[in-house]
Design a protein around this nucleic acid. Structure first.
Lengths: 212, 212
DNA sequence: TGTACATCAGTGAACGCGCGTTCACTGATGTAC
DNA sequence: TGTACATCAGTGAACGCGCGTTCACTGATGTAC
């Protein structure tokens, strides 16, 4: 016996996850109340606990949902044939800097996530690995990541994570700077650094002679 | 007519700034109450407003104080003859990752700072420029940064900022990962990337042929 | 086809609590004479 | 040297408010017959 159609509650839950993602990225997790998120979803505060066990549960689910969506977005970019240059330039753009609510969850929430409990940090870890796998799939397009030897796959992930961390830090720093011109220049220089690390153009010697 | 000696109030204010810095870096700014900070400083909440106009005022002053102390620390490292390798390795160390309350204010607070008001972001911008000038002074040890032509100085600052941003992002990401071994590997790979960008060992081609 | 019913997503008031901030007061201090 | 006084850093209770969470209730829904 199913009342509202099995899709109704699931759709409402997804709507809450999406508005929570935008709120959290704009105002921070600690800066976003449950009642505010529910109002954004056009619901009242009481309905919250029909969908999530606690705010911490919402945080972990939202982090997972945000990263899943980001991984999908990156995979779609790769499928559309966008190269590393376009990827880096769109990530380290003035637009991405100025619209955190629509942007990368890592850049907006990274140091808040590191202060939260195990469930949230585990959700972040799992979600982020899917994101960097999607980034890596851009380069080795035909291959299935799952078919690699485990050790090589891990090494490739670590390299992708380190480069992604540099991008995240660059975007965050450009958001914090009060001087707009300086923030622009940091984005530009950061993009050049990241592209050098990714091996676009002339690959840096230090990456060329290392195993992979 | 001076009562407690002119140093007494100043020393108390400095004590508040230092405990606030530790609290903010450990629990976040939004996660640290005024009463908690005052208790850490062995005072009661009411005394707070004899030293700061508001919590936002404390935040801006604490950010400035933290960055001033960090710049001093980096300058001291440079004076002690530590090279870029030692600098990067100590920044991207497991110890720094595990003790945020004693570590880099940028890594602990960057995305909270970007959400705060102009006063805090301006304090961050000014303080961070002093930090990267202290890092840069490591390399050009005799020269006074103030004597450079303005344009060259700005370009050098932007390069230092972009590299520093990569370090900050790497440390933050390693803090957020629930998998300890993965976090260690990201620190290691991040250190190699940053050293490559700084031109230690073999300078990457993309940095070699650019003006400076 | 029409009616009585069971379900359950969502409502909205209420809870205890900690937040940032205010303020009347305390009491140790150095000064004035 | 001794006493009365002005200063002011710090005390601690109180404020209004928004937080996360609970709960008795509502009312639209699909089902049963």
């Amino acid at each position: 016996v199913v009342r509202y159609g099995s899709e109704h509650k699931r759709a409402t839950r997804q709507r809450i996850l999406e508005v929570a993602g935008r709120r959290f990225k704009r105002d921070g997790i600690d800066g976003s109340g449950v009642a505010t998120v529910m109002a954004d979803a056009e619901l009242t505060n009481g309905a919250f606990y029909a969908h999530f066990g606690s705010k911490e549960d919402l945080v972990a689910c939202t982090v997972a949902d945000q990263l899943r969506a980001q991984a999908e977005g990156f995979a779609a970019q790769a499928a559309a044939g966008a190269g590393p240059e376009a990827f880096v330039r769109s990530y380290l753009s003035a637009r991405h800097r100025d619209d955190p609510q629509d942007g990368c969850p890592s850049a907006a929430l990274l140091d808040e996530i590191s202060r939260r409990g195990d469930a949230t940090r585990q959700a972040y870890t799992d979600g982020l690995l899917a994101v960097v796998d999607a980034i890596a799939a851009r380069r080795a397009n035909g291959e299935q990541a799952g078919e690699w030897p485990a050790q090589e796959r891990q090494a490739a992930r670590v390299k992708s994570l380190a480069v992604f961390a540099a991008m995240v830090g660059t975007l965050q720093l450009s958001r914090a700077l009060a001087d707009r011109q300086l923030a622009d220049e940091v984005l530009e220089q950061g993009a050049r650094n990241v592209l050098a690390l990714m091996g676009a153009g002339q690959p840096p010697a230090v990456l060329r002679h290392e195993g992979g």
